[in-house]
Design a protein around this nucleic acid. Sequence first.
DNA 1: GTATATTGGTTCAATATATGAACCGGAATA
DNA 2: TATTCCGGTTCATATATTGAACCAATATAC
Lengths: 267, 267
Amino acid sequence: MRTVDRALGLLKYFTVDSPEWGLSDLARAARMDKATTLRMLQVMTRHGFLAQDAATRRFRLGIAPLNLARVREATNPLTSVIEPVMDAIMTATNETTHASTGIGTTVVPIGVSEPQRSTRVFVDPSLELPIHAAASGLAYLAFGEPSVLEAVLADPDFEEFTDDTPLSRADVMPHIEEARRHGFSVADKTYDDEVVGVAAPFFDQSGYAQGTIAVATPTYRMSEDKLRETAQAVVDGALEITRGIGAEPSQDYLKAIGRTQTAGAVA
Amino acid sequence: MRTVDRALGLLKYFTVDSPEWGLSDLARAARMDKATTLRMLQVMTRHGFLAQDAATRRFRLGIAPLNLARVREATNPLTSVIEPVMDAIMTATNETTHASTGIGTTVVPIGVSEPQRSTRVFVDPSLELPIHAAASGLAYLAFGEPSVLEAVLADPDFEEFTDDTPLSRADVMPHIEEARRHGFSVADKTYDDEVVGVAAPFFDQSGYAQGTIAVATPTYRMSEDKLRETAQAVVDGALEITRGIGAEPSQDYLKAIGRTQTAGAVA
DNA sequence: GTATATTGGTTCAATATATGAACCGGAATA
DNA sequence: TATTCCGGTTCATATATTGAACCAATATAC
């Protein structure tokens, strides 16, 4: 199955930043043989995952994903549940809000909602997020399948974005533990010196985090009060999403945010 | 590349009607060995194209297609161009309107817009359309890449839906020629005894049809006048889509609908 | 305006890879 | 209680993938 694995891996190279690839370029980027790459691209093109420009011979994403996305959304809505929540959080915080889902050991955005103000954080709607440095990644690791956290920590080949980027297991774990304690993660200048990210996980039927919803605030605008409000907003929003897709958060999570159903402590 | 081909082929089984598959079931349906099927499903799951329910062990579509669809839409909008046009045609005709795109020798829906009236045609938003019997299929064959038409006609293994379903090359070609003459296709009871479909192709940069936009009308409601109006609506809509995605229709097509740019006959 | 490098694409022998029958243990079903 | 189904695993076999060398066509460099 190595072939299938590598072929699917090629799709990751098609992003908003580089939506088109020539054969040689892509083969080089993926460190694969040209002949092999071409054959894979052709098969995926035949299935509609890619399309080849007749003139330039370059490849770009095809329409098959659109169709699959529609089927998934029809039977198992996610985007339609997330969007209104994301918009509500954006309005409440007046900051860029984005949703991501974890796929294996990576975290990819599935939606962005931006406020109408002159200064705001820009989130590339297609670029993979650094799982060790972005708030979304940390929240996903904290509440996702334990094997994912283990896999990520086992090979800590972490890119350094700022002075505060966690670079080792010892750097990352405190963030994870903090997220587990509070029910949300904070990425204060770990990914970008000028940005504070706050993220909370939403869950699927498995009881592990499927993705996260996060708010990205310019550092200079962040305060203790604002952090509290933002955290509240993402935690509430994430809960709403979890329930909107017919799932329940883990007990651990409910405890962390102080809303255990069983214990009537709050009542 | 047979492996990749078969693995991607498995994704076709995930439709709105059967969004979930158990291993044995799917292997049987795809006529593949269980072990092979499982390995493919696992790889695709790892890449996020599928997700496995932890409890039932059944597979359903994952979130990776959502992400790819977003990237494609961000760099190469199609859905966002099609939707308003589709809605306008639906409003004008007051009938179910749907858009499809061709992928190789198949035609799959990418959008449906339904009128608010008690009787209307229902189009399953995920089921593949019969290329030989649906108006969309015929329009796609008429104006798509010639090799696609050849491939389809070479192996006329056509399902018979009604007494009027074209079943051979000799049955299909007149429909194709008619579509080429008029710039739109008509599927009068060829797919469903109670439905008349009218479809027009939209084009991509290659100059061949990328997909179609179609209106499905209950037979009893169809008249000569209504057919004329419907055809006009889909042809205009398809043109709008073609230009909306930055492409131009083929000269053949412009001639068929009597709007050659060069010849100022109409002016 | 000629030479060089790079492009997309093809070929074929070597071999790494996918395959599937038989097999598990467990859970429904009969 | 016996049988049939399920998801998943194993390992020898054979098939499909691989990639270096090659091609013609363009783009780039000089």
